[in-house]
Structures are given as structure tokens and as C-alpha cells.
Amino acid sequence: MTLALRHARVRYGPLEALHGVTLTAPAPGLTVLLGRNGSGRSTALRALAGTVRLAAGAVLWDGADVTRLPAYERARRGLCLVPERQAVFGSLTVRENLALAPGAHDAALTAYPQLEPLLARRAGTLSGGEQRMLALARALSVRARAVLVDEPTQGMAPDVAARTYEVLASLDACVVLAEQRLPPAPAVRRTVVVYELRRGSVVFAGEAAELERRGSAR
């Protein structure tokens, strides 16, 4: 299974955020869309999920063109998007947020046992790192075929962030992360596909190890 963009262009009004981006995320596997703020990595993630429309190009999933398929239909087919902001329902409790995700929550609470004593708390009262844990716990509960996460470890303590990368890397799914820097080892010890974006264009495509070698050679 693969999830791909082909010559994708996205415009926000008169501004073009993606300039003909082509990339392929295999499954199972971990793909990282790397770049600074404004690079287009988050837009590429949203284009795959269908929450922004393409001005040109295509989105392919399992070889089928799903460009015109709305985001909710992609979700029904097993795609789960965890955005950077507003990823949980703040007025609902942690338990109620988890209940919105169909499926067993055992794996989610095993990955994030810190959430168990917070089940009765409203999600809006959690810290930023706790909200990221809750958003990812919901994604784990649905056992999605494709998991797209924008800034997965934002606000998390280092040990929780390391655990998060281990969990994401172990999923039997197409996992695509939008990041400002490469995930730390051990997540990148296995083959990780990396696309580095700058100003809406892909400037590097390859394995994480190759990008690290280039960086150390500079």
C-alpha cells in the first residue's frame, strides 16, 4: 500500500503553497515530511488527508486516484489525520474523546498510561503534551491504515516523545509525519523515507541515514 502526491499544487488565495510536489509514502513504514514553518510540509499532509484541495495534480492511495474523494470518505477508508492544532475536543473529557474513536482503547492506554488517571478530566484543561498524547491515543484506537501526524511530539517530555516515535514506527500502517527535524534514534534506525521541503518544493528525497550523512559532511 502507498499514499502519494503527484505533481500536487495547493493555493491559498493568490499564494501557491505547494509547487508541483511529488512524494510516495509506503506501508508499512514511516515517512517524514521535513521542513521549517512555511516550507509546505503541513500543507502536503493536509493534501494527502483531503482537508485542502489541490489546484493541480493528484492524490493516489493504493494506486487509485482519490483526489476528488472528500476527507470524511478517506477517513472512512482508514485514513486518520492528527493536526497540529485543535486535535482534541476540549469541552469533552479524556474518556469521551477516546470514546469517539471506534475500537479498543487498550493499546492507546498502554502506549500512554499517563492518560488513565486523567480520564475524567476535560481535554481543554490538559497540558499541550497531554493533549498530543490524547490525540495520538485516539489515532491508535482506530487502527487506521494510514496515520498522518503534524508535529507528533510537540510539548511532550523527552521520554514520552521517544516512546511516541517507537509506537509510530511499529505500526502496521502507512505513517506520515510532518516534522521540523528528524526523529531521534531508535525510530530512525530502521529505514525511514524522508522528503525535505523548502518553500513548497521537495529539495531532498531519500532515506534518513543519507540525509544525516549529508548533514555531517557539511
Rank of each mutant, 00 (worst) to 15 (best):
L30R: 09
L136T: 08
R121M: 11
A120G: 14
A208G: 08
R181H: 14
R9N: 09
G90A: 14
T51R: 00
R199D: 14
G29R: 05
S201C: 09
L177R: 05
L48D: 10
P26A: 12
Q154I: 03
V82N: 03
D172W: 02
L60Y: 14
A101H: 06
R36T: 09
P26W: 10
V32D: 10
S216L: 14
A208N: 10
V192R: 10
L118C: 04
L177F: 03
L115A: 05
T31L: 08
D65H: 02
L126H: 02
D106T: 15
M1A: 14
Y165F: 15
R41P: 01
E179T: 07
A185L: 13
E130G: 04
A104Y: 03
V94P: 08
A71F: 02
N37R: 01
R9T: 06
L48Q: 04
H19I: 08
P28Q: 08
R198S: 14
P183V: 10
L177Y: 11
A161Q: 07
L171M: 05
A144M: 01
V202C: 11
L119C: 03
S127C: 02
R122G: 00
S42E: 13
A108W: 04
T43N: 08
P28C: 12
F204N: 09
T22K: 11
R132W: 05
R138E: 06
L54A: 01
T153A: 14
T43Y: 07
G63M: 08
H7C: 10
M133V: 03
A75L: 01
P102Q: 12
Y195H: 14
Q114G: 10
M156F: 04
H105R: 13
T2C: 07
A55T: 15
G206Y: 07
S42A: 12
A137R: 06
Q154R: 11
A187M: 07
A157C: 12
V94T: 05
D150T: 05
L79M: 15
A44M: 08
A173E: 06
N97V: 04
V21M: 09
G124Q: 06
E166L: 07
P14G: 09
T2K: 08
D62M: 02
Y112S: 06
G155P: 04
L197E: 01
E84D: 13
F89Y: 13
D150Y: 08
T43L: 12
G215M: 12
H7Q: 15
L15K: 06
E151T: 09
D172H: 13
P26H: 11
D65E: 11
A173D: 03
T93K: 02
Q180L: 08
G20D: 07
G35S: 01
V147H: 09
L69K: 11
L33A: 12
L148M: 07
V176E: 04
E130K: 01
G40V: 02
T2E: 15
Q180A: 14
L33N: 13
R181L: 10
L81R: 00
C80P: 03
A4R: 15
A27D: 03
M1V: 12
R53S: 15
L5D: 11
R181G: 08
